[in-house]
Amino acid sequence: MNIAIVTGASSGLGWEYAKQLAPRAEVDEVWLLARREERLLELAGDLIGAEGRVFAVDLCDPTQLAEFFEKLEGEQPTISWLVNCAGYGKMGRFVDIDVEAHLGMVDLNIRALTEITQRALPYCTRGSKIVQVASSAGFSPMGNFAVYAASKAYVLHFANALSAELAADGITVTAVCPGPVATEFIEIANMEALKAGAPDFTIAQAPDVVRKSIADARKGRMTSVYGATMKAWGALSGVVPRRLTSWATARFRAH
């Protein structure tokens, strides 16, 4: 049996990945992971093509995650797609954000993603595709988004390095680096004011981001960046001094 595993499937990009992967010929089941079981059940009922299978799992709970991998080991499927989409961010001055929120970002955005990737790899074969959802925030240090941007820099560099390691095995790894996307993330990150003042063209739509990233993953690309604005930011971040980008983003977001 060939499966796609999608974490963070209860909303946003994860929800859209499940919908777009379900009709693919190489996917028999989509395994949906998130905490909100009722949302996952709704999504499973809406999938066209592959059957949706619900796993209500808190990825930051080692016991729950271990139970999921026991089920994976028991069934021994082939993972044709692994999409690590679960993650969150908080905008604001580092000192003003609760320490538990900071540690939660590190735990979910980094630790859980790393563990899931490593434990899933034995079930990947030649032709399998791993999609790690990073962010354009990972291109450069960002004031007032310090921990989130740092966590996504980890995801980006981890994915690119793993892409090189697994190339000989025929397994591709793609880092997805969107800018702001019209999902629940904006509300959770306290970015409503930023969204309200931003031009429409700077806010991407989830179906578009996912569609492009799936196409890029199929082409074996290491990184997928949606939109001219984010591509320009990625290019600039490679040449502009970090001191300047950190200062500029802190000032911009403060206002």
Rank of each mutant, 00 (worst) to 15 (best):
Q205A: 01
Y154T: 03
K231I: 04
A167F: 08
E165L: 11
T172N: 09
E100P: 02
E100W: 07
V225R: 03
K219I: 00
D200Q: 14
V210T: 06
F139A: 12
V225P: 06
R126L: 01
S136V: 02
Q132M: 15
E100M: 08
I214Q: 03
Q118A: 08
V106L: 12
C124Q: 11
M105A: 02
I188G: 05
V210C: 03
A137E: 05
A137P: 00
V176D: 15
D107Q: 12
L166H: 01
E187M: 06
A120I: 04
T202G: 02
T183Y: 11
G197Y: 00
L156S: 02
I203D: 02
T174I: 04
A167Q: 10
P199T: 10
S128W: 01
I214P: 01
D107H: 05
P141I: 13
G138S: 14
R221Q: 13
F139W: 06
L121E: 10
L108C: 08
A198Q: 04
W233L: 14
A164L: 15
P207E: 10
P141Q: 03
E165I: 02
A182T: 14
N109F: 05
A101L: 08
R119A: 06
Y148T: 00
I116Q: 01
I186R: 11
M230W: 12
I130E: 04
V133H: 10
N109S: 03
M222I: 13
A206N: 02
D107K: 10
A146I: 04
N160Y: 01
V106S: 03
A215Y: 08
I110Q: 11
G227V: 06
A228Y: 14
M105C: 11
A182I: 08
D169P: 05
A161N: 09
V147T: 14
S135A: 03
A112R: 02
R126K: 13
V210F: 07
R218G: 12
A235H: 05
R119W: 11
W233K: 09
S135V: 03
F158D: 06
A112P: 02
A134H: 00
P178C: 15
K195Y: 03
A175F: 00
A193Q: 14
T202H: 10
G127K: 06
I214N: 03
I186W: 04
R111S: 11
Q118C: 08
A196C: 04
I171V: 10
A150E: 06
G104N: 12
N109V: 00
